[in-house]
């Protein structure tokens, strides 16, 4: 068992190497838009779980629009394929959520909303520096 701790350094080195930090200038990214999306996302799953279809649809639309903008933003930046891809995936999750809400399948919609949240997080890992 003791060995478990000794090997750690090596693993870390490997893991650190695998995280590629975006080296592009993101200072012109619309932070307001991102905040709107974050806030909206925070109420999306609760709205879905509360079977609040109307509010959920409104939320999804806002996120769809925001992701559309985000996708175009990264596309125009270049050298940000991850960003483009993640925004596209996000839009898919949003679409799935929307379809499920429209079909009245709130459980499925909630699951899609959670996927969407994970998608946001994944993108932030790469593009959103975490401050104090």
């Amino acid at each position: 068992m003791r060995n478990q701790f000794i090997g750690a350094g090596l693993i870390v080195a490997l893991l650190t190497a695998s995280v590629v930090w975006a080296e592009i200038d993101l200072s012109d990214f619309d932070e307001d838009l991102m905040k709107t999306m974050d806030d909206t996302n925070k109420t999306l799953e609760p709205d879905i779980a509360g079977k609040n279809a109307q509010a959920a649809i409104e939320g999804i639309e806002i996120i769809q629009q925001g992701l559309q903008w985000t996708e175009e933003y990264f596309a125009s930046k270049g050298n940000a394929e991850d960003g483009v891809k993640l925004a596209q995936e996000g839009k898919q999750h949003a679409m799935q959520a929307l379809a499920a809400v429209n079909a009245g399948d709130f459980e499925k919609a909630a699951a899609a909303a959670r996927d969407l949240t994970k998608n946001c997080k994944a993108c932030h890992e790469i593009y959103k520096p975490k401050g104090l």
């Binding site: 012109d28 619309d30 307001d32 838009l33 709107t36 806002i62 629009q65 925001g66 903008w69």
Partner: peptide, 8 residues
């Protein structure tokens, strides 16, 4: 949102 986007 439109206003937001319009700004940037």
């Amino acid at each position: 949102l439109a206003v937001l986007l319009g700004l940037s």
